[in-house]
Design a protein around this nucleic acid. Structure first.
Lengths: 232, 232
DNA sequence: ACCGTAGGTGGACGCCGTACACCCGGCGGT
DNA sequence: ACCGCCGGGTGTACGGCGTCCACCTACGGT
């Protein structure tokens, strides 16, 4: 028994490191969302006692920063040899793919931005290079400034994942009956019906999130292009 | 002593109610942010024991829903007798004012949307009436659908409060020295300097958040208008 | 052979959300 | 006048959280 314990003690346990902690944390958040993420659970996943993590990250905040850095680092670098418009477009779409891979990320990044000292360097680098793309396209500093604000703003106050699907979620016990739904929210239901009957995409909801996103992106880029052209 | 205790016992303590709980919660969140919000603290603010709250709200989730309903209800109703464009514009600006009043709200709403059964009826009503504004302006269902997605999307993946100020926050111990800043993030610094020297708004940072927001809003509305016109 | 140190451990503290049993005061029925 | 019901506030307790602190242990440099 003690012999086996000794055996187990120098089991080739890879020795833990900031990278390993961060990866485990990201993995845990990817499946199970951000509130399935606790120091204790990360430690458990790594087969280690909770406090061991603190030898590699200062605290949970700093761990979240590290996770952000990790996933923002996944965004593809800008393509060379392309107009500003396609360069920005590709970059934003790559960022979006990252955010779909790590659904917790957008919320965490946003929360971290709200009242913190400074964004992490990796985020800064992302923003910097995005600005660089506009500048390379000949945008004035002023217009770039506006552009960055436009691309970061959420006009409705919250984002689109609002009524995207209407399907997939399980029936939802206390949902309103359709007739009352139609009575109280006529426009929403009209829209939902129209979208549903439209094109009959096999997956159920006829609303293709990706193309909606690209629609918004292109509308914005077109608008910026027009302003850029108007400024000679 | 016991006499006084008896006195205290029928102190005219207004008898608690869902409304009072919600108001206290909103007040607590307004000052101190969303993580200063705990059942125990709300109870304390109301001079009551924590579990008393549960006679009026089912649990913390439901309480957050209630808070959202409360603040979304603060958004001004649509103005009558105006074109779709100004009607939408005013409504969005009113929503923004609410979100500035309750900085915690956007985060909570967004989080709640991510993986929940359904938005609360008040939020639905807000969306419904927004859709109604576009419809009244003659937009096709299809275009309205696009429009709602556009207005809800955050192209950068996170919103603008990113590097808005650069001032106000206290010095921040471990900030990069300006020269390294300039070296690593040349575009950001160039932009920041340009904005700072621009116009010299008294408050320090030369970036007026409100007008940036309106810039983004107008750019979007113009884009939608153009699409609407193109569709005859 | 020694010791300093980096890295893993164990326990404890104070906070959180909330389940459960309780208790008290006012009100309707008799 | 009494009784029993019940709505709403109370007390206690549990499990989970982040993190402080003291501790141990194995290893590399001298």
């Amino acid at each position: 028994m003690t012999g086996q314990a000794a055996d187990a003690s120098h089991r080739p346990r890879t020795p833990l490191s900031r990278q390993r902690v961060l990866s485990a944390a990201v993995a845990l958040a990817d499946e199970g969302g951000v509130d399935a993420l606790s120091m204790r659970r990360i430690a458990q996943a790594l087969g280690v006692v909770p406090m061991a993590l603190y030898k590699h990250v200062a605290n949970k905040d700093e761990l979240l920063d590290g996770m952000i850095d990790a996933v923002v680092g996944e965004i593809d670098p800008p393509v060379a040899d392309a107009g500003w418009k396609t360069a920005v477009r590709l970059r934003v779409l790559s960022a979006r793919r990252m955010l779909l891979r790590h659904p917790w990320a957008s919320g965490v990044i946003e929360a971290r931005m709200k009242a913190r000292t400074a964004p992490t360097p990796t985020v800064m680098a992302y923003l910097d290079s995005m600005i660089g793309l506009f500048r390379a396209g000949g945008f004035s500093l002023d217009l770039v400034h506006h552009a960055m604000h436009v691309m970061g703003s959420r006009l409705l106050g919250f984002s689109q994942e609002l009524f995207d699907d209407t399907s997939d979620r399980e029936p939802d016990p206390d949902a309103l009956p359709p007739e009352e739904m139609a009575a109280r929210f006529p426009h929403i239901t009209a829209l939902a019906m129209a979208v549903a009957h439209d094109e009959g995409s096999v997956v159920g909801s006829g609303c293709d999130d990706q193309s909606e996103f690209e629609f918004a992106l292109d509308l914005t880029l077109d608008g910026l292009e027009r302003l850029h052209a108007a400024a000679h």
